[in-house]
Design a binder for these strands. Sequence first.
DNA 1: ACTAATACTGTTTACCACACAGTATGTCAA
DNA 2: TTGACATACTGTGTGGTAAACAGTATTAGT
Lengths: 112, 112
Amino acid sequence: MSNKDNKIEAEMNRGFLQIMVLLALENPMYGYMMIRFIENIGYSVVENTLYPMLRRFEKNGWISSSWDVKHDRPKKYYEITNEGKTVRNKLLRIWQKQNGVITKLLEEVKNG
Amino acid sequence: MSNKDNKIEAEMNRGFLQIMVLLALENPMYGYMMIRFIENIGYSVVENTLYPMLRRFEKNGWISSSWDVKHDRPKKYYEITNEGKTVRNKLLRIWQKQNGVITKLLEEVKNG
DNA sequence: ACTAATACTGTTTACCACACAGTATGTCAA
DNA sequence: TTGACATACTGTGTGGTAAACAGTATTAGT
């Protein structure tokens, strides 16, 4: 059951995580930093989800990266591109539409 | 590109569609009826997404079904179960949490 | 020296949205 | 009366992604 619950949450993360990451990368950030950033705002992502996602987004041209090798360990900073912003806005519009549908249906459920 | 966009929307539907269907099935409905119902509230699902989903949910015990063979074509009516309502509420809590995160991040983006 | 935190890469699995394909009945206009 | 369209469902295959599992290497604290 806890197993099935994890599956549910994984499904819920699809779509949402993409928006969250694209919004977060309005400010440059590297992977590990983002994991903690996300925890600070009350959510969580695991490494094995976030890192492949960042590589995928870069491949898509939605974000760009640059290595910071000046301070201690090398850090790969990512930042959203203009194309990424376009995608982000598109995703946000879909999200808001979906949120409207949910709100509407919820009201109907409440009002019997 | 339009191809990639479709993929994005497919991803956005994961999670959301589950909530929408579980909310809609507060009132008994059969598949085809739900497709039109969803269109009426300003969204859309294709048959090949909805029908397998309904079968899956029934297998999970989230919804139950019964055939209506009295009127013209046979219709498979589905309805949410108590277990389904528990799942639905869980999904809604996740959705609202995610919505909170997005709202928060959006404000930060707007405020520079 | 050892442990934990930091910061990343690589491979594999399970699941799902949707495309593609098919079956069968009911309705209505030319 | 036939042919198109709506209704109502089932079945199979594909591609993309979250997350499990696994590994590498550096730095900080004890």
